[in-house]
Design a protein around this nucleic acid. Structure first.
Lengths: 218, 218
DNA sequence: CCAGTGACCGGATCAATGATCTGGTGCTCG
DNA sequence: CGAGCACCAGATCATTGATCCGGTCACTGG
């Protein structure tokens, strides 16, 4: 016990897991832009350069943090609810996690190869296979669903986080000023529509699933 | 003519447009990660600080560059082909532009409020309205289509650009090593499937359009 | 013709950041 | 007890976005 390195440090010894854990807290509190190795080290009560003993680069920290949040997405394995319900639950959970950690959307442009992500992708493919979806619809379905969630979360997070920075207000005024140039957009666009992202997302998901179902054997 | 500022400079005087133009060239050649104000200035044959007279911040340059590429997306206004063909053409053009400039995918996390993007969004909304799509399907349709393209382009660009950096190889080996843990993924995943992104994208788009059509009045 | 105004340019400079080099410090095993 | 190892951190470097302040030209009013 207490394998502390220095004289009487109270915190557990630095570890990869502790770094990721603190990185997650920092990201949730201040966003991706403010994650610095120095700041992270400070929060951990350690020197900034020490982190590099446990982690190769800063990108490593980001990759690990990104994969970590997907541990919260429950995999509805063997729920007995049918493949449609299972996939809906998976996708909804996926989306919820992305929206719960808005900084994650900014990181979606990197390859997601962590164990949590892979496990959930595996479930998606397996469920579709079991439902009788074959190529080329299988690839289209898996990609379509993934891409749809990713795009939706990215756009919603972008919109919501920039809302506080008065970007939204500027956009609204710009919209009103050029109302004649963008009539449909001004009347029905994201600014006119409320903040009901959920039903819109659910509708699109239904359409995708309908299309998939039409090409499944069961 | 020749309103050159200094003694006999051959290039036209620096302007916002020239900056954006050169930024686009730099981005296309070297990617988003290597766009630096200094490098950009060097290519323009000017001092790095001079750029800040024409542009407020680096983000301005990125926003302008991102909107600029969408000028190449043809708006099929009044094509007489029907709304489905028009929207398909718009979405396909949107996707083509994103894939032609892979760096753009990394910038999709910022609000896109440039004139080119707004004009094309306006066309999307207007076309859907004309097709008889009303709320809440209108918002769902517009968002669904946009998010689907964005997510697809993001994922494909991520995958393709990281392919050269041997990330793909590492992923493939990781996949083979854990083949038992990810059976469906290993057999049918993006690594197993070829590089035929197009048909998968087209299929998903069809499903979305089918769903939209089922909720339109015409 | 000439002083002055303002658009435009850039060298020096600052603070922040990712990453490395190098030298510790204390625990543990033989 | 002492040698090796896991772990830590100060000093340091290069890069980058951004600002300060002083320059340089074209043009204009008198």
């Amino acid at each position: 016990m207490r394998p502390s390195g220095r004289a009487g440090r109270e915190a557990p010894p630095l570890s990869r897991d502790r770094i990721v854990e603190e990185a997650l807290a920092l990201l949730d509190e201040e966003g991706a832009g403010r994650l610095t190795m120095r700041r992270l080290a400070e929060r951990l009560g350690t020197g900034s350069t020490t982190l590099y003993w446990h982690v190769k680069t800063k990108d490593d920290v980001l990759d690990l943090a990104l994969d970590a949040i997907f541990a919260d997405v429950r995999i509805p394995r063997g729920s007995g609810q049918g493949w449609r319900a299972d996939i809906t639950a998976l996708i909804d959970g996926w989306r919820a996690v992305l929206l719960k950690h808005p900084w994650s959307s900014a990181l979606l442009g990197r390859p997601m190869l962590g164990p949590n992500v892979l496990a959930r992708s595996e479930f998606l493919y397996a469920t579709l296979l079991e439902a009788g979806v074959g190529e080329p619809h299988l690839t289209a379905a898996a990609f379509g669903l993934s891409n749809y969630v990713i795009g939706s979360a990215l756009m919603q997070a972008t919109w919501l986080t920039s809302a506080e920075q008065a970007v939204r207000q500027a956009a609204q005024e710009h919209m009103r000023a050029n109302r004649d140039r963008y009539p449909a957009l001004a009347a029905h666009g994201p600014l006119a529509a409320g903040d009901d992202w959920d039903t819109g997302f659910a509708l699109g998901l239904t359409w995708l699933l309908d299309g998939i179902e039409a090409n499944a054997r069961h």
